Measured scan of single mutants.
Amino acid sequence: DWREIAKLAEEALKKQQPVTVNGQTFNDPNEIKKLLETAQKAI
Rank of each mutant, 00 (worst) to 15 (best):
E10Y: 12
K14N: 13
K14G: 07
K14M: 14
P18M: 06
A9V: 12
K33Y: 09
A12W: 03
D1C: 09
A42S: 09
N30A: 14
E4Q: 11
K15N: 15
L13F: 04
W2I: 03
N30C: 07
K7M: 14
D1N: 11
Q16P: 04
K7L: 08
E10A: 07
E11T: 07
K14D: 06
E4T: 10
I43Y: 07
Q40H: 12
Q17L: 10
V19P: 01
L13H: 03
N27W: 15
D1I: 11
P18Y: 06
A6D: 01
I32S: 00
E10F: 10
L36M: 07
G23M: 03
E4K: 09
G23P: 00
T20C: 10
Q16F: 10
Q24N: 11
T25L: 08
E11I: 08
T25G: 03
K41A: 15
Q17N: 06
T25R: 05
T20Q: 08
Q16A: 12
E4H: 07
Q16L: 06
N30L: 14
Q40S: 07
K15E: 09
N27G: 04
N27D: 13
A39P: 02
E4M: 13
E31A: 08
T38I: 12
K34Q: 11
E37R: 06
T20D: 04
V21W: 10
I43S: 06
K7C: 10
E37C: 07
Q16N: 15
I5W: 04
E4N: 08
K41T: 13
G23C: 07
L8E: 05
K41H: 12
R3W: 15
V19N: 00
Q17D: 06
K14H: 13
D1K: 11
Q24A: 03
D1S: 15
Q40F: 08
Q24K: 14
K7F: 12
P29T: 10
P29S: 09
N27E: 09
A39K: 00
P29D: 05
E31D: 12
E4F: 10
G23T: 03
K41V: 11
L36Q: 03
V21Q: 01
E37Q: 05
L35P: 01
L13W: 04
A39D: 02
I43G: 06
D28N: 13
Q24E: 13
A42K: 12
K33P: 00
I43F: 04
E37F: 05
E4I: 09
G23K: 04
L13M: 07
Q40N: 14
Q40Y: 15
Q24V: 15
A42L: 15
F26K: 02
